[in-house]
Design a protein around this nucleic acid. Structure first.
Lengths: 211, 211
DNA sequence: GTCTATATTAGGATAGAC
DNA sequence: GTCTATCCTAATATAGAC
């Protein structure tokens, strides 16, 4: 019933435009045009463009940190991990503007630098925790050396897959399918899984390819 | 003896600045300042900033295409592949500004769009050729499904590793060590190699970690 | 080939009326 | 809260002298 507040509409539309066109290509004028409000009005709600970017980043950071709260000593199941990966890629896709022009965004919005690095470390840590849980449950055979490289690879893929994938599938730029990213992640784990789990993950991963 | 032409100095310095600061953050004024020439002089040699970017991209494209001319039906040795990877990462690092803000660079310099996509396809094809050669020589056991995912992963890593790595090691941003990238690529191949080769690649890869 | 000075524009942001 | 009008600045690019 209650109509959406202008402030929130600004954030929503900005996010869509940032993702579709790249943040540096989106001017405050374009945002207000798209909303059919005046630029002055936009500046009534946000004192600068960086305020919009930083608030959007804040939401991303918050969602990701919730997601990455992986319990340290839990026995993580394959299904849980799957669900986790799905949410992860869905979230990254929804805020993909951050990764699409990462160096530029981080350099122009100084305030994002350290939160971003902290998040990266947390992501890496989450993957390590998951793999170690698998190892502990004897679902995974992996040496320390292999584990380190695998976690780097998982983190790299979590960050950049969405951008990479949209290079090939540039049609319909608004909807991004997280499935292909999850598939790629499962493929990375596969060689280190024990026999029964390998079969299971292979089946799950194929289902992701289907859509 | 003959002193370096201004035109070439402009290209060299632009490349350094683009890599260090990100292309969008480098103005024509900054380039001319760094060279201690006037902005007017810069515009005598290049009619626009995009001319500089496009000529640099042209060089990158040329070098990469030379590198990717992998013979179709050759028996590729591990050493050859190693050398190839090393050159690949060295070249990408030297032109890393392209990947650091990929969406922005491709959208602002339209002329780069299709060459870039063509190059991406060629890269992917080169990895496929190499892996198939390994398979043919029975150095590698891999299914079609695994091969497809592996080549995607190799291509992704070839594109983004350098950017990813510089997020962790932001110190001394001018020299980028290609070794860690090569290491990561070898780690991706490792699970699919046969027993004798696996041992060999493991040794090679460890040597890369050392420096 | 190189300079200085300047034109042109575009984007971020503010002032003040309604 | 929203508008119109306008300012400010920084970046690309040009003109014309040397």
């Amino acid at each position: 019933m209650g109509k959406v507040k202008t402030r929130d509409r600004i954030l929503d539309v900005s996010l869509q435009l940032f993702n579709r066109l790249g943040e540096p290509n989106v001017t405050t004028l374009l945002i207000s045009d798209e909303l059919e409000i005046s630029p002055g009005n936009l500046y009534y709600h946000f004192k600068s463009k960086s305020d919009i970017v930083e608030e959007l980043y804040g939401r991303f950071d918050h969602e990701m940190n919730d997601l990455l709260a992986v319990p340290e000593d839990a026995e993580i199941t394959l299904d849980q991990q799957n669900f986790f990966l799905h949410l992860l890629f869905e979230t990254v896709a929804r805020y993909r503007f951050i990764y699409q022009d990462l160096v530029n965004v981080l350099s122009r919005y100084d305030a994002l630098q350290s939160p971003f690095r902290r998040l990266l470390k947390r992501k890496q840590k989450a993957f390590r925790t998951i793999c170690e849980s698998f190892r502990h449950q004897e679902m995974m055979q992996i040496s320390g050396e292999e584990l380190a490289a695998l976690c780097e690879q998982l983190t790299l893929t979590a960050c950049y897959w969405t951008s990479y994938d949209s290079l090939s599938h540039l049609q319909e730029r608004d909807r991004v399918d997280p499935g292909r990213g999850v598939y790629q992640m499962l493929r990375l784990l596969l060689p280190y899984l024990g026999e029964p789990e390998r079969e299971q993950v292979q089946l799950i991963s194929r289902a992701y390819l289907a859509d």
